[in-house]
């Protein structure tokens, strides 16, 4: 019982402190600019581009796709910086020196970003309703909430894996930005997946967000939770796979760093 309590305490403290550490140097304006206005600008750009492409007939497709894709801001950038922050701030050797449960320590880094990312999607969908008249009258809001939460979890899974890369490469912002923009293509946020060549469709199916975006589009157009359950479960499964891959990469990095004495090497 005591072990469980200690691990939960470790999980919660790691969660809270890594999140606070990430944003403590920021002013509220920076948070608003990054998490509210930047997503709004992205939604506006791709929705107008989509409106131009479709002659104004299919704007909801782009609004929903980009609103859900916004979880990648928290899932990729937030989680990666939470993990990589230990390296940049010089606390990685202390972290690797503790006897703390690695699983609690690792997955704790993503926990707050799940809620933060889900909040970002709600704000983005709100922008969609306000500016583009996105209609939720047919939507099962509970099911949409589950879809948003699961999509955020799966994107954070990818973020955990990317975060481990930030422990072994100095070009983390290059990798993060590239992945974020590639998700704009492959997730189907802006393009109907069926128009892709086969190899691109295969990549799409191996990534988080793809099923989450498809599920959100179906739910907003009136589908039920039962109809989108396979998509939601698939999205969750993808996230768990990436999360576990990240965890094993994290352990491998720790092992290699200790063996070679390369902690904090940039």
């Amino acid at each position: 019982m005591r072990i469980i309590t200690n691990n939960l305490r470790l999980f919660w403290q790691g969660t809270l402190l890594s999140y606070i550490a990430l944003f403590v140097w920021l002013r509220p304006t920076t948070y608003i600019a990054s998490k509210v206005l930047m997503p709004l600008a992205q939604i506006l750009f791709f929705s107008f581009l989509g409106s131009y492409a479709s002659g104004g007939t299919n704007v909801d497709f782009y609004v929903i796709g980009n609103a859900i894709q916004i979880v990648a801001v928290s899932g990729i950038f937030g989680v990666t910086l939470s993990i990589g922050g230990d390296r940049w701030n010089g606390t990685l050797p202390y972290l690797f020196g503790t006897p703390a449960n690695r699983m609690m320590l690792f997955f704790g880094r993503a926990f707050m970003h799940i809620f933060d990312g889900a909040l970002g999607v709600v704000i983005a969908l709100g922008w969609g309703a306000l500016l583009f008249g996105l209609d939720f009258s047919q939507t099962d809001l509970f099911a949409l909430g589950i879809t948003i939460l699961v999509t955020t979890i799966s994107t954070c899974g990818l973020g955990l894996m990317m975060g481990c890369l930030s422990l072994i490469t100095a070009n983390v912002m290059f990798v993060n930005n590239t992945v974020y923009f590639l998700l704009l293509i492959f997730s189907g946020a802006n393009i109907v997946l069926e128009t892709f060549p086969n190899w691109m469709q295969i990549i799409s199916q191996m990534l988080p967000l793809t099923r989450g975006i498809a599920s959100a589009r179906l739910l907003i157009s009136g589908s039920s939770l039962a109809e989108v359950t396979p998509l939601v479960l698939g999205e969750l499964g993808i996230g768990i796979i990436y999360g576990w891959l990240g965890f094993y990469l994290f352990k491998w990095v720790e092992n290699q760093a200790k063996r070679k004495g390369t902690l904090d090497l940039v």
């Binding site: 930005n177 704009l184 802006n190």
Partner: peptide
Amino acid sequence: DSFILFAVLIQPMVIAILALFMLRGT
């Protein structure tokens, strides 16, 4: 600087791919 590589090459190419797919036939 790898960020320059991203801003000058990667990001515009991703936007080009997206726009080429989206604006096809316009």
